[in-house]
């Protein structure tokens, strides 16, 4: 559905994207994950034919974003980070405007359907200026799906919402994901975990990791860490744990010890045996699940300070 090859984008001399490549299959929900300024918005703006790439080839539904720009715009529904709304218009008037721009047939019926879907039917006649942030976000979503696009591109759809609204929008995106191809950017990692089939982690204009949330976690968890809690110890627990084969590192945590081992599955019986043989009680022995947060920090921590700010919304 979407193919990106060696996509490069320069703003002046600054390389916002340094040759990224990926594909998105029909029906997939793909999350772009990355800190601000990583190149997420730039990638999306190129995908939506808002601006042309400096180099590389991007096709959406078989159309090139430069040569087939109009066709690309037709198959894409896009919600930019700052939701593009006209405060003086009513919700209905706004959607009517967008629907006419897009040449949606039977506009009024379609607007009703879409408003129902985002749960804004009863606010159809409200002026947009009087809506809460969460409602505006939903109107923005309604705008993006008004023409039932094959591809939906959502730039940080949950930013600035309160926790309940965040849940609602995520729910909505998951629902839409059943019959749309969705690319959706976020810097909240749990969000990507919950909503996406696949995650691309972008940093400094490059893809630093790619895979299902589960996959990514497994991959980076190799030789992961264990938490061990020992009760009633009358000796040096840390020293004992260190002696267990394949254990690389032991650090004492609040109530126990965190162990890094080369093989976090095979080492568990050895630890249990060692503790019991010493005559102590083993209260807890569990793997520490690495969240995407950890993965993310590990992948992108290298040169945090040099991060360039993302180009501001104009």
């Amino acid at each position: 559905m979407i193919e990106v090859q060696d996509l490069t984008k320069y703003y002046g001399n600054f390389a916002a994207l340094k040759g990224i490549s990926f594909t998105v299959e029909k029906g997939e929900v793909v999350g772009f994950l990355g800190p601000n300024g990583a190149g997420k918005t730039t990638t999306m703006r190129i995908l939506t034919a808002y601006m042309p790439p400096s180099a590389g080839k991007v096709t959406v539904a078989g159309y090139d974003v430069v040569d087939g720009s109009m066709e690309v715009r037709r198959v894409i529904g896009y919600m930019p980070e700052t939701v593009p709304l006209y405060p003086d218009m009513s919700v209905f008037g706004y959607l009517d405007f967008v629907a006419e721009l897009r040449g949606v047939p039977d506009r009024w019926d379609r607007i009703e359907d879409v408003l129902d879907r985002v749960g804004m039917l009863e606010r159809a006649d409200s002026l947009i200026r009087n809506l809460s942030k969460g409602m505006r976000q939903r109107v923005g979503l309604a705008q993006a799906i008004i023409h039932d696009p094959e591809v939906l591109i959502l730039d940080e759809p949950t930013i600035g919402l309160d926790p309940r609204q965040v849940l609602e929008v995520r729910q909505l995106v998951r629902e839409l994901g059943r019959d749309h191809t969705i690319i959706f950017s976020t810097h909240i990692l749990s969000e990507a975990e919950q909503v996406c089939d696949r995650v691309l982690i972008i940093d400094h204009g490059q893809i630093v990791a790619e895979g299902t949330p589960q996959n990514l976690r497994d991959r980076l968890q190799k030789g992961g860490r264990l938490f061990v809690r020992v009760g009633r110890a009358d000796g040096d627990v840390e020293a004992l744990l260190r002696k267990v084969p394949t254990v690389r590192e032991v650090t004492s945590a609040e109530t126990g010890f965190i162990i890094s081992a080369d093989d976090n599955v095979g080492v568990r019986p050895a630890i249990a045996r060692a503790v019991v043989e010493a005559g102590w009680d083993l209260l807890e022995l569990r793997p520490l699940a690495m969240t995407l947060e950890d993965i993310f920090l590990e992948l992108t921590a290298s040169d945090e300070d040099t991060a360039e700010p993302e180009p501001e919304e104009e």
Partner: peptide, 16 residues
């Protein structure tokens, strides 16, 4: 349109 970011909407619509 430029200030409110709605130009981005118009420029990603199938409109010349």
């Amino acid at each position: 349109e430029t200030r409110e970011g709605t130009l981005e909407l118009l420029l990603t619509m199938p409109v010349r």
